[in-house]
């Protein structure tokens, strides 16, 4: 699932920075960018989008006023240098509020909120969410989120972050694949590719160069084939 996203920001560098951050997250597709709200309004009223990054203080119309006029509100993330606007922002049911200057981890945290909001409407298929069992803490901005290991299907490494695919949501986190591989090795997790660490308990089917988890095929690369073979041998009768 990709989020169709629009950026409205009058500061040229702030716009470029947001574009750069968005381009690093595969879940986000920036469909349009605007330098002010008035130019964006017709587009927003005619094109459904999932996510709007919008500056508050801009020429013409403020971000807050623009959001008020929108009929079909996408998920909103306000960006601004003014802390005092935060209250306004949250009154409008903004998903998050990025206070300039903000960095990539903080940006990822905002996007995580959007992802968890959009996926929260889906039924929670995980019954054992809060039952004991083993768990890890995942970095989310400056916070750590506790996630039961049983919930994790696989972990995908991106350029700047890793993405945990859980049974009913995704969490992006600025962690390191190598560290994760090592710390989770004892807990039934296995690296099968430069970009994938899988929860072996979730494997459904194993083919020659791939395996299936939750209906999705993941590649097993040459480098990690040997290790995976060892794992298979251990579990073959």
């Amino acid at each position: 699932m990709t989020l169709r996203c629009v950026i409205i920001e009058d500061e040229p560098m702030a716009r470029k920075l947001l574009l750069d951050y968005c381009s690093r997250v595969s879940e986000i597709e920036v469909v349009k960018e605007f330098t002010n709200g008035l130019d964006a309004l017709p587009y927003l009223n005619n094109n459904p989008i999932d996510l709007l990054f919008i500056d508050i203080k801009m020429p013409g119309i403020t971000g807050v006023d623009l959001v008020k006029t929108l009929q079909n509100k996408p998920k909103i993330i306000f960006t601004t240098a003014f802390a005092e606007y935060a209250v306004d922002g949250f009154e409008l049911d903004a998903t998050d509020y990025l206070l300039k200057p903000f960095n990539f981890p903080r940006f990822i945290k905002a996007v995580n909120k959007v992802l968890s909001h959009t996926q929260a409407s889906q039924p929670n298929t995980d019954g054992n969410k809060n039952t004991g069992g083993d768990y890890i803490f995942i970095k989310d901005g400056r916070d750590m989120v506790k996630v039961p290991l049983a919930e994790i299907l696989y972990i995908k490494g991106q350029k700047d972050y890793v993405k945990f695919t859980l049974r009913n949501r995704k969490i992006m986190s600025l962690m390191n694949m190598k560290d994760l591989e090592n710390s989770l090795a004892e807990k039934g997790f296995l690296r099968i590719h430069q970009s994938f660490i899988i929860n072996t308990a979730q494997i459904e089917v194993v083919s020659n160069n791939s395996l299936k988890i939750n209906g999705e095929f993941l590649p097993i690369s040459q480098t990690y084939k040997q290790g995976f073979k060892k794992f298979l041998d251990k579990h073959q009768h």
């Binding site: 500061e11 560098m13 702030a14 920075l17 240098a81 003014f82 206070l99 300039k100 200057p101």
Partner: peptide, 9 residues
């Protein structure tokens, strides 16, 4: 703060 954000970029 805008200048700091530009610096960030």
């Amino acid at each position: 703060f805008n200048t700091l954000h530009n610096l960030n970029y």
